[in-house]
């Protein structure tokens, strides 16, 4: 009887088996138990968390006037940061859905702020997200994890701690490339991403100085977007309406710009 040409050679079986075992072992390493003290933190995000933002910017100018400062900085260190949600997310005996931030240390090389009043003589830290309860890494929307040694532009929200800042939104970072071009963290196809990436760094620097100079504001000064407000006490405990009374807008069906393929909803 003629043997099949697809017969698996003995050494080939061992190769495939060994590779499969290595792959499974790798999975075990990145998917350990939920206990924080035993878990392994991923070194790169393995999934994108899709987030609905509270703030939307139409342009880089609008994002800048909504920020406290904009800094050009090099990442010098990254380490695990605070853990949130550890107590709120699990029933007794069940797995937590806590998340952990990444603390990113920045050496600021250039700062832009209202009338140039903000200075950053010492390293600052910003937060990025993050890891889930199993140590699996995730990035939020298009904001990939910052890398040590790379240079970025960060749009900073308000902070009362001069050494710890928050990036104003997931759209609020741009990588500065070797050619001084900018690669925005905003979502693909968004107006603010196009706006950021229409500048080279030196051009944007000039523009930021203009809009942060309150004595000579540009005529086309954009309006700031308000950050989300803190909730009043006890507000989480009032129920939502069961039947919203708001009238629905007319559904244009296939004429709302989303055709011919259904997949604009998956971009």
């Amino acid at each position: 009887m003629r043997r099949s040409k697809l017969r698996v050679p003995k050494w080939g079986m061992w190769t495939v088996a060994a590779v499969a075992a290595m792959a499974v072992a790798g999975t075990v390493t990145v998917l350990p138990s939920a206990k924080a003290e035993t878990r392994t933190l991923d070194t790169e995000p393995e999934v994108v968390a899709h987030a609905a933002e509270s703030m939307e910017f139409e342009s880089v100018g609008q994002m800048a006037v909504s920020s406290t400062a904009v800094v050009r900085a090099t990442v010098t260190r990254i380490e695990p940061g605070r853990i949130v949600g550890a107590d709120e997310t699990a029933e007794p005996g069940e797995e937590s859905a806590a998340t952990q931030a990444r603390d990113v240390t920045l050496e600021v090389t250039e700062a832009f702020s209202w009338n140039g009043k903000r200075t950053f003589p010492d390293p600052i830290k910003v937060e990025e997200w993050g890891w889930d309860a199993s140590g699996d890494g995730y990035q939020v929307n298009n904001y990939s994890w910052s890398e040590v040694g790379k240079e970025y532009l960060f749009f900073l929200g308000y902070s009362d701690d001069p050494t710890r800042w928050n990036v104003i939104s997931t759209a609020g970072r741009a990588e500065v490339t070797d050619g001084e071009w900018l690669v925005s963290s905003a979502e693909e196809g968004s107006a603010v991403k196009s706006s950021v990436e229409s500048y080279q760094m030196f051009e944007l620097g000039h523009y930021l100085k203009r809009i942060y100079d309150t004595k000579n504001p540009p005529l086309d000064m954009p309006d700031a977007v308000d950050p989300p407000a803190a909730p009043p006490a006890g507000y989480e405990d009032s129920p939502l309406p069961t039947a919203p009374t708001t009238g629905d807008p007319e559904d244009l069906g296939t004429n709302d710009g989303s055709e011919p393929t259904p997949y604009p909803s998956s971009t």
């Binding site: 609905a52 949130v84 949600g85 997310t89």
Partner: peptide, 15 residues
């Protein structure tokens, strides 16, 4: 799940 995550501006996320 729902819980407070301060210092960010996203309202909700799915992963």
């Amino acid at each position: 799940h729902d819980y407070k995550t301060t210092g960010v501006t996203w309202a909700a996320q799915t992963r």
